[in-house]
Computed example of a mutant assay.
Amino acid sequence: MGRIAYVNGRYGPHSEACVHIEDRGYQLADAVYEVWSVFGGKLADAEGHFARLKRSLGELRIPEPMSREALTIVLREVLRRNRVREGLIYLQISRGVAPRDHAFPEGFVRPAVVITAKALDRAASEAKAALGISVITTPENRWGRCDIKTVGLLPNVLARQTAREQGAGEALFVDEMGLITEGASANAWILDPDGVLRTRDTQANILRGVTRSTLLDVIGEAGLKVEERPFTPKEMAQAKEAFITGAGSLVLPVVKIDGQPIGDGTAGPVARRLRSLYIERAKQTAI
């Protein structure tokens, strides 16, 4: 059976799914999105993703297209129709279809909703995590509202492509003060020489990562010391360990930055432990 997509109230073949040419998400990036990890056919970190979705829609003044209860039913149905037990589910909501104009359309416009799902090979993901990834740094050049999860991701796309061309798994943005903000699609962390876990605070221009938030709870329960405090690329290079977090990467060890090994150049024990603890929590709380 081929993949199934949900588009504006209808389920249909993924290969035939489409939106109107004047959908504002397509033409103006006037849209938001969320991505849930899926464990055992259930949505991980559901509460955090629904809350962030609501906030993003509110910041862009896009009406909620349906209740949370209805949206949950549709998300689960997309998973069921695609037979996805382990993977990711993607939701995008745009302001809708209207004649192209930069200002909001006048009158009510129904938001457009797209949902897709794909399966992941968890064994392959674990093998990747066991080895760790390398990262590169790139100057921060994104807009000033990265706290809103919009589909306007061109700087992220270019940064990730540069990382791929250099054989790296992620690109980390560095601001004008020389501090790492976050990755192209993940939050960044280090275990500093004093044994303190550090990640940038969300008062800065970064996305309020849902995986990041859950991991902070996991870290607290594990009795580890953590500080929401920024760090430089040099500090990451000199750290005991480093890792990134996100719905797709979960907790993924970083072993090299800009060609320099971090720690002993292997996936560190703290990062590996936190990955295991996070996955255990995600499975237990998925809905």
Rank of each mutant, 00 (worst) to 15 (best):
R10A: 15
G12V: 08
A17V: 06
H20G: 01
I21Q: 08
L28N: 04
D30A: 03
V32G: 00
V35A: 05
V35C: 06
F39E: 12
F39W: 13
G40R: 02
G40C: 01
A44E: 06
A44G: 07
D45C: 13
A46F: 14
A46H: 14
F50E: 05
A51T: 15
L53R: 04
L53K: 01
K54T: 14
R68P: 11
L75C: 06
R76L: 12
R83T: 08
R85S: 14
E86F: 04
Q92T: 09
Q92K: 07
S94Q: 09
V97H: 00
V97W: 03
A98L: 00
F104D: 13
T116K: 11
A119F: 11
K128D: 14
E140A: 11
R142E: 09
L158H: 10
R160C: 06
Q161M: 15
T162R: 14
V174Q: 01
L179P: 03
D192T: 13
V196L: 12
T202V: 10
V210L: 03
T214I: 14
G223M: 10
E235T: 06
Q238D: 15
Q238K: 13
A242I: 09
I244S: 09
V251M: 00
D264I: 07
D264S: 03
T266A: 13
V270C: 10
V270D: 05
R272S: 15
R273Y: 06
L274F: 06
Y278P: 11
